Each structure stands twice: as C-alpha cells, then as structure tokens.
Amino acid sequence: MTRTTVSGAVGQGTGRRLSYVAFAAVIVVYLAIIQVGGLIVRNAFGAERDTMTTTYGVLVSMVLPLGVALLFVYGVVAYLGWWQPVLRDDRPVRLWVMIVPAILVVAILLAINYGALLGKGFAFILVFLLATQLVGWGEEGLFRGIGVTVLRQHGLREGQVALWSSLIFGAAHLSNAIGSGVSALPQALVVSFAGYFFYLTRRVSGGNILNSVLHGLFDFSLLTGTAILANQGSYPGTLAPILVYIVLAVLLLVRRRKIEPAGDPTGGTA
C-alpha cells in the first residue's frame, strides 16, 4: 500500500492506495475476527448454547466479536486516510431512487416480531439492537465504504462498482457455512441483492450512514422472527423482506437506465 492522492470519485484529499489483494486480506481478517474470534469468546465465556436467545448470549457471541471487527474496519479506514470517501459519496443518483431505502424501512417494520421482543425484555432488546447495528456499520464500512472506494480507485465504471461490490459482499457470507453448512450458498446469493440495495441507499443519501443504520435494522428485524424464537414456529413477518427483494428487483430492472443523472459519463449502475 502506497500513499497517493485520492480525488474525484473517491473523495478529495490524500490517502493510501489499496490493492485488490490487500482488500481481500482485510475481508479475511474481518471475517476471522467474527467467526474464529466469536467461537473462542463463546467457549471462553460459556455461551456455546442459546447464543441469540439470552442477553448474556448476545453480549458474548455477538457484541464482543462484532465490536472488535468494527474497530478493525475503521482502524483500516483511519490508516488509509479514507474518512472522506468512505463516509461520503460524491456520485449522486436520481431522486426517485430514495424509494429503495423507503421500501426497506417498510420491510423492517413488517418483519419485526414485536411480540417476541416484548417477551424478551428491555435489556435484551437494547443489546440485540446494539449487536445488529455493529453488523450494519461494520459490513457497510467494509463493503460499501472501503470496497466501493477500492473499486473506484482502480478505475472501474460505476456499473462495475455496483456489481462487484455486491458480489463480493455476497461471497463473504459464504463464511457462514462454518455454522450453517450448504444453506450459506442461497444466503450468499440473496445477500448480493441486498448489497446492491444498500449500495443505492449509500449513493442516494450521499454517504455511508443511512445504509449502515438500515442494514443493522434489517438484520434486527429478520433475526427477531427467527433466531430469538427458540423451539417455536417461524414468524410470518419474515416473508416481508422476501417480497421486498422481489419488488425492488423488478423496479430496479425496469428503471435501471434512469438511476444515473442524465448525461452521467461514469457508466451507470445497469
């Protein structure tokens, strides 16, 4: 990694240049902190069971490793000198794209299992919300922050940035095969679509904050209908994100040529 001037699409100011190999190494370390570090922490603190059904389990199995992973991501951002391009996005899209985060908010509100949360208590809700926000800020900082900046820095057109940042995001979730086996494969595919939605949210909001918050809330809503319901049936609200994926996919496919501002020379997101 060498110091260079970072300008234009990746923000104003100076910063280091990150190679694709170095970016891959950053991803591997991030995943290792969560997967391997999480396993070590769970064993050390006796939280091998019910990792997401008790306040203590969430603190040990999620908040601790995710917190360290988040510090690692933004430590990398600080080392690279990329605060500007990671936290702000200077590639606007047309205003109608704001419908993407708006629809995501609707999905979040529909998917939350309010009854299950109330049964868990206030302390659990706060800790679980913290844990999922750590996921959102960590993954968005890594994939939509550092990842998008790396791809732009290497001269990719914006359509390529959208595609590859989303695919890399999905591929990284294959690491979940450690705990869930082959079910991680369809999850990686679905996550790639989600990555594109968060990418558009970053661009339409002009920064990496809204997509980070929504990412965390999206995971929060999904997990309230699945992971915290030990020995119970599935929650119908979890169908909302699936329907939203379909709606957004169709909408963006139909309007793919109306995402970039008129006359934009960067290649578009189609």
Score class of each variant (00 low, 15 high):
residue 19 S to N: 09
residue 101 P to C: 12
residue 160 Q to L: 11
residue 16 R to P: 13
residue 265 P to W: 09
residue 2 T to K: 11
residue 6 V to D: 10
residue 198 F to E: 07
residue 248 L to F: 07
residue 141 G to H: 01
residue 231 N to E: 11
residue 115 G to P: 03
residue 195 G to S: 02
residue 235 Y to G: 08
residue 269 T to A: 11
residue 126 L to A: 14
residue 128 F to C: 00
residue 189 L to I: 14
residue 68 V to Y: 07
residue 115 G to F: 01
residue 219 D to Y: 03
residue 225 G to L: 01
residue 4 T to Q: 14
residue 226 T to F: 06
residue 67 G to T: 04
residue 111 A to F: 02
residue 186 P to N: 10
residue 37 G to I: 05
residue 259 I to R: 04
residue 261 P to I: 13
residue 122 F to G: 06
residue 92 P to Q: 07
residue 71 L to C: 07
residue 267 G to P: 08
residue 260 E to T: 12
residue 202 R to A: 09
residue 152 R to F: 11
residue 256 R to D: 07
residue 52 M to Q: 13
residue 85 P to D: 05
residue 261 P to Q: 11
residue 267 G to D: 06
residue 99 I to Y: 08
residue 64 L to T: 12
residue 153 Q to G: 14
residue 103 I to V: 15
residue 205 S to D: 03
residue 108 I to F: 02
residue 1 M to T: 05
residue 25 A to I: 02
residue 72 F to C: 03
residue 69 A to W: 06
residue 63 V to P: 10
residue 109 L to E: 00
residue 153 Q to F: 12
residue 164 W to V: 08
residue 27 I to P: 04
residue 261 P to Y: 12
residue 223 L to R: 02
residue 241 P to C: 03
residue 66 L to C: 04
residue 29 V to E: 05
residue 65 P to Q: 03
residue 202 R to H: 08
residue 7 S to V: 15
residue 219 D to A: 06
residue 215 H to K: 00
residue 60 V to G: 00
residue 180 S to D: 12
residue 159 G to F: 00
residue 106 V to H: 10
residue 104 L to V: 15
residue 268 G to M: 03
residue 51 T to C: 08
residue 121 G to T: 02
residue 194 A to H: 11
residue 35 Q to M: 13
residue 159 G to Y: 00
residue 64 L to G: 10
residue 237 G to L: 01
residue 121 G to Q: 03
residue 95 L to R: 15
residue 2 T to Y: 11
residue 105 V to T: 08
residue 214 L to R: 07
residue 26 V to G: 02
residue 108 I to S: 01
residue 112 I to K: 01
residue 256 R to V: 02
residue 178 I to E: 13
residue 16 R to S: 12
residue 181 G to V: 07
residue 146 I to N: 01
residue 176 N to C: 05
residue 90 D to T: 14
residue 73 V to Q: 04
residue 153 Q to L: 12
residue 73 V to P: 04
residue 66 L to N: 07
residue 52 M to E: 13
residue 170 G to N: 09
residue 37 G to H: 07
residue 250 V to T: 11
residue 153 Q to K: 12
residue 256 R to Y: 03
residue 21 V to G: 11
residue 124 F to E: 02
